[in-house]
Design a protein around this nucleic acid. Structure first.
Lengths: 246, 246
DNA sequence: CTAAGTTATTTGTATGAGTAAAGAGCTGAG
DNA sequence: CTCAGCTCTTTACTCATACAAATAACTTAG
């Protein structure tokens, strides 16, 4: 029953098109809620009516509701039906919810809030990484940085290297909950990047600030790492602000 | 269809005993996974076999799996079955997962990681609160502090006041994602408190550090608020460390 | 007017049948 | 021997239907 050791690098969990029915219903409803088409306190149509309306079975619809409920978006009880919960109960850091939020054209406030949180969390993560990184971490980061420089952020492989770079920093911080948090945020910020590249290709060269951060972590200089990450996030925010106004 | 305005203070969503079947199955399996009884990579028995074994219908079992899947604990696909995902994909900040983790006798490392995260996030939240708090926030905090002093943390009502105090600080920070995060952590910390009170009633009077924090936020002194919260978390950690060793 | 009991509506649970996906193994060509 | 392609078989996924449980709203006795 124990799992074989090397299963973690199999292919990606699900490609874009292949989603099961319950999954796509959950996604659609989730986006609708995040977009405000159903507001907190609203009660959804009854199971039978709504599932017919969506042209799916009651089973599939109910499984979709369970998913939304698990993320805190809705709450269902007999007799009263299924209603959208108040915003403060939403799991805003859930990766799916973040993805849905960006599908639903997130408010400028929300993006700003995310950067504010990022500014709190990521520099601290970088500081911990500088303290705890192993040789393997360093070589991974170095490799990622090299690829990133070679291919640039315009290519798929370059962006993957960027992701790997940041991910390795998080792993090096050796803190599970922190990693769960930062990787969610980072993913969200990636959507922002895509979002922002719709309007104009980003002109700034991202390599210098990444290199400074890398050097600080390699040197084990905690405060330099913190400062470098702070600056990196600050620059990213500046880019985003720019494109929001554009 | 729009919700009536005052619905947020209805009675609590679910009492301890009243859980639906899919909910309790999800809880049981969640705890089992968090406790390591099913390790990442393990594949669960098939739907039919497992649901029979648990003495529930396939419907209820499947809804339970949807819940776990929504929280990132498992992943199911035709032919391969339902398997526990690798730990890095778990949503460790989900309130339910945190609750389950504490049910499952969390590792000392995990508790330490949580405090480390708390040390990163909460002082920043306090600083923001000092900057942004409204008059209403202040009066709420004051009231909570008063009740907390009157009833003490040994009583249910006193602990509720403590919760309210911290929660108001989070609201005052005016950042949705940050609030989602901190409230999860706070809940986890509450369980730590319960956990730790099993062994010995905590001797330290929690009022002084709370009052210092309150004064700083009232005064709008950002750095003092940050420092006060840092100290508060540090003391809490010290208490916990003590009871872990005991 | 209050409180206890009844009713009606909505979600929850169960079961069985049939569909679709995806790895395992076979087969045959190179 | 290697590998592409096909078939096969296992497993989760979807659907339809019936019945159970919970509970808000109503009704009625006091």
């Amino acid at each position: 029953m124990r799992g074989d050791p090397g299963f973690e690098d199999i292919k990606l969990p699900l490609a874009s098109g292949s989603r099961r029915i319950h999954g796509s219903v959950a996604r659609d409803l989730g986006i609708a809620i995040l977009a405000g088409r159903y507001a907190p306190g609203d009660v959804l149509p009854g199971e039978i009516e709504f599932s017919e309306q969506l042209k799916v079975s009651r089973t599939a619809y109910r499984e979709a509701v369970r998913i939304l409920s698990a993320k805190g978006l809705v709450e269902s009880r007999p007799r009263t039906g299924t209603r959208v919960t108040q915003r403060s109960r939403w799991n805003l850091l859930d990766p799916d919810i973040l993805a849905w939020a960006f599908e639903a054209e997130p408010s400028e406030t929300f993006i700003r809030d995310l950067f504010e949180l990022r500014m709190i969390v990521e520099p601290a993560a970088a500081a911990l990484a500088a303290e705890r990184r192993s040789g393997l971490d360093i070589s991974r980061m170095g490799h990622a940085l090299e690829e990133m420089g070679r291919y640039g952020l315009a290519t798929e492989i370059g962006r993957a290297a960027d992701q790997a770079f940041h991910n390795t920093i998080l792993e090096a911080a050796r803190n599970g909950p922190l990693m769960a948090l930062s990787s969610s945020i980072a993913a969200a910020v990636t959507w922002t990047t895509i979002f922002k590249q719709r309007r104009s290709a980003l002109p700034r060269d991202p390599m210098p600030d990444h290199r400074v951060l890398y050097e600080a972590i390699v040197a084990g200089d905690v405060e330099a790492a913190r400062a470098a990450m702070t600056e990196l996030v600050r620059l990213a925010l500046a880019d985003t602000e720019l494109s929001l106004k554009a």
